[in-house]
Design a protein around this nucleic acid. Structure first.
Length: 131
RNA sequence: CCAGUUGACCGGGCGGCCGCUCCGCUCAGGCGGGGAGGAAAGUCCGGGCUCCAUCGAAAUACGGUGCCGGAUAACGUCCGGCGGGGGCGACCCCAGGGAAAGUGCCACAGAAAGCAAACCGCCCGGCUCCGGCCGGGCAAGGGUGAAAGGGUGCGGUAAGAGCGCACCGCGGCCCCGGCAACGGGGACGGCAGGGUAAACCCCACCGGGAGCAAGACCAAAUAGGGAUGACGCGGGUUUAGGCCCGGCCGGUUUUCGAGGCCAGUCAUCCGGGUUGGUUGCAUGAGGGCGCCGGCAACGGCGUUCCCAGAUGAAUGGUCGCCACGUCGAGGAAACUCGGCCCUACAGAACCCGGCUUACAGGUCAACUGGCGUC
RNA sequence: GCGGGUGUAGCUCAGGGGUAGAGCAUAACCUUGCCAAGGUUAGGGUCGUGAGUUCGAAUCUCAUCGCCCGCU
């Protein structure tokens, strides 16, 4: 799991509850199949975490959602910026959405998240429902 | 051919490209190989394994199991029987020990719900104001109820009654078959003992507790905790415990002393938290095939195979072809074309044996009933 | 991995073998000039589901489903 020097595209995987909670305070963007959260962090290597709640489905469905999202994030791994942490929250639609649409959505969501961060910090109480 | 019963099984296949994880080899570039299930699930039982407790066991309490025999490491599982119930049948279902050890409960209805009793009644005698009343006998009939003290019939009687008899049931006894549960038969008894133990309970048998986040080890870094004991210093004496002498007295409890507490020193013992890694960890009550024993569960022997090991948790993404299913169109049909689903239930986490539950679609075998033909 | 609780009227809960109840809510009526409060009455239940024991099950037993909560 350690990122070696010759593979710089390798991402750091977020593991701890604290890291997920921190990312939840950042800006977010929703797309079909997932919701993306991003926040600036100290580490140079960008971090990425996946989470799918119990309510989404049973075990094979949750597992499959994570796999498809993981494959999609491999496809656009170069777009993740250094000094940032990302969390992908899986939704049920991730089971059925075509894979190209998933990759496209993720690419757009990353751009959207950084654009939203540039304009202002998230004001408290304002639900950021961007769809 | 139709309907059904039981058992067993499959639960997409092949191939590109890009990835993930483990193992082996490596000339360090890579190469080769393995990679979810029948339920991996629920966690309802039984074990292995590890630690804790205990001299070893037994008992109490609590919990579980409950016809008999067998299988098994063990089981609440499985197999074969027995008994009861259901089905025309193949076959299916049953927590199926004990109610003469004791206690409790049996609503409503009913006279009466557990020990015998008598509401309407029936019979005999007496009295009568002719409505009935009193005394005695009876439990067959009526009525209530889920259940009313063996059932049916005949005899018997004032009316009746196991009062007597026959058959059936019941009870213990004897004989026979069976390892046994149990079954068959015989003579006897003369009915006593309603139901409920998934009510308490009694009897027999089983169970120490916790769980791989068990447990063992390594490294780093940080903090230095708790308990107990001794202790101011020097000298003398004694084997030692101790005793004696001198000077000095950490803080606090008003002062001194004793004692206590706190702080300090030393010794012994015990221990916490954080992060990462290794191990446990995959050769096992293991799978396939064949032969033998057994009705079977299963066992024995031979041979062969190595078959997932992740730790925010791998086994994926995508494309093509084929197969299956389904829908639509064409066709007399075989079939052709196009679309859809490109699949059900569901994802290993120490391992194994079961149970239970979920499951689109499909395959095979044996058997049963019915119809048709020969 | 281990363990516990709960499911009854629209909501919150009683009932632990013998005809399913309370409060709030709903509806109608009374009261008031009107509303609220108050009063009277009514309706509303597969007792989570399926088997079993029993004469009889919301209650006892077994299986199953959903929800909630602990410990590690």
């Amino acid at each position: 799991m350690t990122a070696t020097g010759d593979t710089p595209k390798r991402l750091r995987r977020l593991l701890k509850r604290r890291e997920f909670l921190r990312a939840a305070r950042g800006s977010r963007a929703g797309r079909a199949g997932f919701s993306l959260q991003a926040i600036a962090g100290a580490a140079e290597v960008p971090g990425l975490g996946f989470t799918v709640t119990r309510k989404t489905g049973n075990s094979p469905e949750r597992s499959r959602i994570k796999r498809r999202l993981r494959a999609a994030s491999e496809a656009c791994s170069s777009q993740f910026r250094p000094h940032h942490d990302y969390v992908l929250i899986g939704r049920r639609e991730a089971l059925t959405v075509p894979f190209e649409a998933l990759v496209e959505g993720l690419s757009g969501a990353i751009a959207r998240v950084h654009a939203g961060k540039a304009q202002s910090q998230r004001p408290p109480g304002n639900r950021n429902e961007t769809q």
